[in-house]
Design a protein around this nucleic acid. Structure first.
Length: 466
RNA sequence: GGGGGCGUAGCUCAGUGGUAGAGCUCCUGCCUUUUAAGCAGGCUGUCGAUGGUUCAAGUCCAUCCGCCCUCACCA
C-alpha cells in the first residue's frame, strides 16, 4: 500500500534502487535467488518453453493420461508450495485451471530438486511429467523435470485472504487477474459477448463502421466532454461522447444499416458503474421505427443470454432475471400512473413540479414539464424495473434527437430498456426533420446558456446532412 | 461537490494515553503421497504526512494526502 509513496520518493533513481525501496527484504531474497540461477547458467527469464498441454485438457481426460503414462509439458504460475522432506507438492495455475505438481528428488534429481526448492510463490515454471492420483485422491502431475520460466520478484497477496485491497484490485488489475479466476472469466465473457453481437448484427446485414473519436464538435448525448488540442491545426478538439451524429450521416449517405462498437469519453463523476472511458454500441436502421428496433433488441438480448449462459434465467444480486418471456412494455407516463396514481398528461408544469417537490426531489432539476416527469419516474419507477421492461414514449424535452410521437407532440417515439434497475439500451424513431432538429439544437443552446453544461452544441453540418 | 468510514510488518488485521502485536509470507532446521501440510527456531515497522496537547501519542486535537462506502449527476 505504501509502494506508491515510496516509488514517488525514488523517482529518478535507477530501476534497481526503485524496486529495492518498497519491499526491500522480500525482493532482495528473490533478486538474490535470480542471480544465483544466472551463476548456475540458468536463465531466470528464458524466451520460450514448448508446452504441449493445458491443465484443463489434462484434467478433463485424466484417466486416459494416467493409463497411457502420457508425458506432458505444462507451464504456469506456482501459487502454493508444500515441502515434505525430499518431496514437494505445489499448485500450478495456467490460463485454463489448476493442477497439483509432485516433485520427488528420486524422480527429478538433486539439481532440479534444488531449483524447485528456490522457486517462490508467484514464479512461472514449466513442468514435464506423467499423471497419477495421490493417496488422498488428488489428480497430480509427477514431475520428471522443472524449468524456471519467469522469476517473480514481488510476493503474491496472502494465500489465505487473497487480494482484499480494492485500490490494488483496480489499479493493478493484473494482480486481481492472477488471484481471482472469476475476474478472468468476466473478461472472457465480455469478449464473447462482443463477438456474439458482431455475428448477430452481421447476419442481419448491419455494416460495422468506425467513426471519428477526435471531433471538432461533440454531440449525440448529454454529457461534458474531454477537451484536447490539435497542435498543427491549432484547434480545440473533443473526445467523442457518442458516435450518433456520425452514424446518422452514414445513413444520410446511403447505407441502410450501420453500427459501431464505440469507446466514448465523458468528463463526469465516476463510480463503480461509471468510467470516464466506456464502451457502447450504437446502430442505425433506415426506414425502421422504434417498434422494429425494440423487437430486434429484445431478440438479440435473448439470444445473447442463452449463448453465453446456456439458459434464459440469470442471477443478478438477489434477483433472478428471466429473458425468455416477452419483455414488458409500458409508456413512461403510464408507469408513473401505475406507481403513484398521478396522471402526468393532465398536469401542468407547475402541478407536476409541486408533486415532485412533495416527493423530496430537489427543484433545481425541475426546469420544465418533461424534466419533471423524468425526475418523478426515476425516483418512483426505475429502481423497481428488475425484469426486462421497455419504457416508451418519453417527453420531448428530454429527447432532443428523437422524432415526435405521431399521436402526441409532447412525447417522442422512444424506448429505453431496463433490467435489474438499470438502463441497458435506449432507442428512438430518429428525428429526420431538419427544421425540427434545428429547433431542438437551439433549445439545447438555451439550456447551455442557462447553465446546463451537459447540453449539446449546435452541429451545423449535421443539420445540412439531414 | 455533500455525508459517513478507513490508513499499524510484504499480505490480512488486532492494539482507546504508559516497553509496537498475531496469523500468513520470508529465512534456518526436521520430515519421500501433502494440500490454508505439520513441527522447532528466527528476521521484519517513518503506526499515511505535518503540526499541536501531554511527563508520555499508534491512541487525543488540527490541517493535509490517499482510499472505500453513500447521496447528487450520468451510461
Amino acid at each position: 500500500m505504501n509502494d506508491k509513496a515510496d516509488l514517488k520518493k525514488s523517482a529518478g533513481n535507477e530501476p534497481e534502487e526503485q524496486i529495492q525501496i518498497p519491499l526491500a527484504d522480500l525482493i532482495k531474497t528473490r533478486v538474490d535467488k535470480s542471480k544465483e540461477l544466472k551463476q548456475l547458467g540458468i536463465d531466470p527469464y528464458p524466451a520460450s518453453y514448448k508446452r504441449d498441454h493445458l491443465v484443463r485438457d489434462i484434467l478433463s481426460d485424466f484417466d486416459t493420461f494416467v493409463s497411457k503414462e502420457t508425458v506432458v509439458r505444462i507451464a504456469g504460475r506456482i501459487r502454493l508450495k508444500r515441502k515434505m522432506g525430499k518431496v514437494f507438492f505445489a499448485d500450478l495455475y495456467d490460463s485454463s485451471g489448476r493442477i497439483q505438481l509432485y516433485i520427488k528428488i528420486n524422480n527429478v534429481g538433486q539439481e532440479c530438486f534444488d531449483l524447485f526448492n528456490s522457486v517462490d510463490l508467484g514464479d512461472i515454471v514449466g513442468c514435464e511429467g506423467t499423471l497419477f492420483v495421490t493417496r488422498t485422491g488428488e489428480n497430480t502431475l509427477s514431475a520428471t523435470s522443472v524449468t524456471m520460466l519467469a522469476k517473480a520478484l514481488h510476493p503474491l497477496p496472502d494465500k489465505h485472504s487473497g487480494l482484499a485491497d480494492k485500490e490494488i484490485k483496480y489499479r493493478r488489475r493484473y494482480v486481481d487477474l492472477i488471484m481471482n479466476e472469476e475476474v478472468r472469466d468476466t473478461f472472457r465473457l465480455r469478449t464473447k459477448m462482443i463477438s456474439l453481437i458482431r455475428n448477430y448484427l452481421n447476419n442481419l446485414d448491419f455494416l460495422e463502421v468506425e467513426t471519428p473519436v477526435l471531433q471538432p464538435l461533440y454531440g449525440g448525448g448529454n454529457a461534458k466532454p474531454f477537451e484536447t488540442h490539435h497542435n498543427r491545426l491549432d484547434m480545440k478538439m473533443y473526445l467523442r461522447i457518442a458516435d450518433e451524429l456520425y452514424l446518422k450521416r452514414l445513413i444520410v449517405g446511403g447505407y441502410d444499416k450501420v453500427w459501431e462498437f464505440c469507446k466514448d469519453f465523458r468528463n463526469e463523476g465516476m463510480d463503480r458503474l461509471h468510467n470516464p472511458e466506456f464502451s457502447m454500441i450504437e446502430l442505425y436502421w433506415a426506414f425502421a421505427d422504434y417498434n422494429d428496433m425494440a423487437l430486434m433488441f429484445e431478440d438479440m438480448l435473448r439470444h445473447l443470454v442463452f449463448e453465453m449462459h446456456g439458459t434464459y434465467k440469470i442471477a443478478y444480486g438477489d434477483h433472478e432475471i428471466d429473458f425468455e418471456p416477452k419483455f414488458k412494455s409500458i409508456s413512461m407516463i403510464d408507469s408513473i400512473k401505475e406507481a403513484t396514481g398521478l396522471e402526468m398528461m393532465d398536469m401542468s408544469f407547475e402541478d407536476a413540479k409541486a408533486a415532485a417537490v412533495d416527493m423530496g426531489i430537489e427543484d433545481d432539476v425541475l426546469i420544465n414539464w418533461g424534466k419533471t416527469v423524468e425526475a418523478i419516474w426515476e425516483k418512483k419507477v426505475e429502481p423497481n424495473l428488475i425484469q426486462p421492461t421497455f419504457i416508451i414514449d418519453h417527453p420531448v424535452e428530454i429527447s432532443p434527437l428523437a422524432k415526435r410521437h405521431s399521436d402526441n407532440e409532447r412525447l417522442t417515439e422512444r424506448f429505453e430498456l431496463f433490467i435489474g434497475g438499470g438502463e441497458m439500451g435506449n432507442a428512438f424513431s430518429e428525428l429526420n426533420d431538419p427544421i425540427d432538429q434545428l429547433k431542438r439544437f437551439l433549445q439545447q443552446g438555451k439550456a447551455m446558456e442557462a447553465g446546463d453544461d451537459e447540453a449539446q452544441p449546435l452541429d451545423d453540418d449535421f443539420i445540412t446532412a439531414l
